[in-house]
């Protein structure tokens, strides 16, 4: 094979939560000298101009980047069109970047790389990488794109996909059961010895899976489906 998994991704298969993936993306940034790596959910664009970012990793000490959680992108933005509609990654020179990337801070000496990602079930994502123009020639671009795709593949399987799979895990079932007895997140957290954050992320996942909007509906649906008595 021409491409190899870079050494910095030895922990690739051990990553299970978002921070683990943050660490992997950070490793990529350090390894390839990137200033910024952002992973966007492109599924609603360009129908909606707001794009949610699933992961933002900044690898620059003097970061004065504006909030990247949700960015607004016009539907004629060439860079984002590449991410949404094309197959191969593209390298954008300094002028392109300044013209099209308005959400970020000072980009005057930055080269950009956009990487379109299309999943087998027809969902679309994209990487936006910012590289200092001075080092862009020294990077093996193909190796970089390959590495990003490797991490994304695991990110998709571990973080994105489970949210959309209608299978209730044993832990999630416990959360439903305790909710049905009127326990709050904090109380369930104490009972199960977990953090409220974890309980809330379980609950959010359950709501998505059962396609309901609040806890009352969640409990009702679970009883109707025979998940709990």
């Amino acid at each position: 094979m021409k491409y190899q998994k870079p050494d910095c991704l030895v922990d690739l298969d051990r990553a299970i939560n978002k921070l683990d993936f943050y660490r992997l993306f950070k490793c990529l940034c350090v390894n390839f000298d990137l200033d910024l790596l952002a992973l966007f959910d492109m599924n609603n664009w360009p129908e909606e101009t707001a794009i949610e970012s699933l992961m933002v990793v900044v690898n620059r000490e003097d970061s004065n980047l504006v909030d990247l959680d949700v960015v607004s992108i016009e539907n004629n933005n060439l860079i984002f069109q590449n991410m949404r509609d094309e197959m191969l990654h593209k390298v954008w020179n300094n002028q392109n970047v300044i013209e099209h990337i308005k959400f970020s801070g000072d980009m005057s000496s930055t080269t950009g790389i956009s990487i379109p990602l299309h999943t087998p079930n027809g969902r679309h994502f994209g990487f936006w990488l910012a590289v200092p123009t001075s080092v862009t020639d020294k990077i093996d671009h193909d190796q970089l794109v390959y590495s990003c795709k490797l991490v994304f593949q695991n990110f998709f399987n571990e973080i994105i996909l489970p949210d959309s799979m209608p299978i209730i895990s044993p832990r999630e079932l416990e959360v439903i059961r305790w909710s049905s007895e009127g326990k709050t997140s904090v109380e369930i957290a104490i009972i199960l010895g977990l953090s409220e954050h974890t309980i809330n992320s379980y609950t959010t996942k359950i709501l998505q899976k059962l396609q309901v909007v609040n806890r009352a509906q969640m409990v009702a649906t679970a009883i109707r489906m025979g998940l709990i008595k």
Binding site: M1, M87, L117, H118, T119, P120, G122, K149
Partner: peptide, 13 residues
């Protein structure tokens, strides 16, 4: 549509 998977297969076969 040529998707990522066919492309991945293409590259690894």
């Amino acid at each position: 549509m040529l998707d990522e998977i066919s492309l991945a297969f293409f590259n690894s076969t």
